[in-house]
Amino acid sequence: MIQAKCHCGAASLGLPTAPTEATECNCSICRRIGARWVYFTRQEVTLPAPQSTQVYVWGDRMLAFHRCRSCGVTTHWQSLDGSRDRMAINARLIDGLDWSAIRVRPFDGADTWKYLDEDDAV
């Protein structure tokens, strides 16, 4: 199992596999966080203890962004209403990733809600 953990280690997530692709979104929160998101189903991820994270919800109130209560690093987001089986993990929390081997896809979450590299998508 692959570990993604915050700076202080209090909020750690278990992932089934190392990512081969990540999304870099330019929406107002993602560009400030600097996250590169990798996606899994909720069943595939071992979540940190609930008391180790704090939730931030805003805007349309569809996503809950989690951050470590101790060091403040954003760890993941989940659907608030459970309508999405997919959740996102901040891949920057995975030590030792070879970013040159990972496809980083730019996503325009600020305007068009489209991947900006769709012309070359397989």
Rank of each mutant, 00 (worst) to 15 (best):
A4K: 09
K5W: 12
K5G: 14
H7D: 14
H7C: 14
G9C: 10
A10S: 13
A11M: 07
S12D: 10
S12G: 13
P16G: 09
T17Y: 14
P19S: 06
T20A: 15
A22R: 00
A22P: 06
T23N: 12
T23Q: 12
E24C: 14
I29E: 11
C30K: 12
C30H: 10
C30S: 11
C30W: 07
R32E: 11
R32F: 08
G34E: 12
A35P: 01
W37I: 02
V38L: 02
V38Q: 00
Y39I: 02
Q43D: 10
E44T: 05
V45A: 02
V45P: 01
P48L: 00
P48G: 02
A49F: 06
P50M: 04
Q51E: 14
S52Y: 03
V55A: 15
Y56N: 08
Y56G: 06
V57L: 07
V57S: 10
W58D: 11
W58V: 08
D60P: 13
R61G: 05
A64K: 15
F65V: 08
F65I: 07
R67T: 06
R69W: 06
S70I: 10
C71R: 10
V73E: 07
T74L: 15
T75R: 06
H76W: 03
Q78N: 09
S79P: 02
G82W: 03
G82E: 03
S83H: 08
S83G: 05
R84H: 12
R84F: 12
D85Y: 01
A88I: 04
I89A: 01
R92L: 10
R92F: 05
D98E: 05
S100Q: 11
A101N: 00
I102H: 01
V104E: 02
R105H: 07
F107Q: 00
F107V: 01
G109Y: 04
A110T: 05
A110R: 09
W113R: 05
W113V: 05
Y115T: 03
L116D: 04
E118T: 11
D119T: 12
D120I: 15
V122H: 09
